Simulated assay, not measured.
Amino acid sequence: MKALNRIIEAARQSPTRIVLCEGEDPRVLAAAVRASREGVARIVLVGDPEAIRSAAERDALSLDEIALIDPAASEWRAILADELVALRAAKGMTHELAQQEVLKPLVFAALMVRLGYADGSVAGAVNTTADVVRTAIQLIGIEPSFKLVSSFFLMMLCEPFHRYKGGLIFSDCALVVDPDAAQLAEIAMTAADSARNLLMEEPRVAMLSFSTSGSAHHAHVDKVVEATQRVKSQRPGLAIDGDVQLDAAIVAEIAERKIEHSQVGGHANVLVFPNLDAGNIGYKLAERIGGAKAIGPLLQGLNHPANDLSRGCSAEDIYYVIAVTAVQAQAARERAAHHTQEPHAA
Rank of each mutant, 00 (worst) to 15 (best):
74 S>N: 10
170 F>M: 08
295 I>A: 13
208 L>M: 07
346 A>T: 15
223 K>M: 11
59 D>C: 07
234 Q>N: 15
199 L>N: 14
51 A>W: 03
316 E>H: 14
97 L>K: 05
66 I>Y: 00
65 E>A: 03
275 N>F: 09
91 K>M: 06
24 E>T: 04
256 E>S: 09
318 I>S: 01
84 L>D: 10
257 R>Y: 07
292 A>N: 10
26 P>K: 13
88 R>K: 11
336 A>E: 04
294 A>M: 05
95 H>I: 13
89 A>V: 11
301 G>Y: 03
240 I>L: 07
265 G>R: 07
153 F>P: 15
75 E>N: 14
17 R>N: 14
97 L>F: 10
233 S>E: 14
275 N>C: 05
241 D>C: 06
44 V>D: 03
160 P>R: 08
280 N>K: 04
282 G>Q: 01
276 L>H: 07
277 D>C: 09
37 R>H: 13
315 A>P: 06
107 V>N: 01
127 N>T: 13
186 E>L: 11
271 L>K: 08
176 V>W: 02
130 A>E: 05
104 K>T: 09
157 L>H: 15
57 E>H: 03
196 R>P: 11
262 S>K: 06
188 A>C: 02
297 P>T: 00
227 A>C: 08
299 L>C: 02
169 I>K: 14
265 G>A: 11
106 L>M: 05
181 A>C: 15
326 A>E: 10
48 D>M: 14
48 D>E: 12
114 R>G: 05
312 G>L: 01
164 Y>Q: 05
136 A>R: 15
317 D>V: 13
106 L>C: 03
177 V>C: 09
273 F>Y: 13
294 A>P: 10
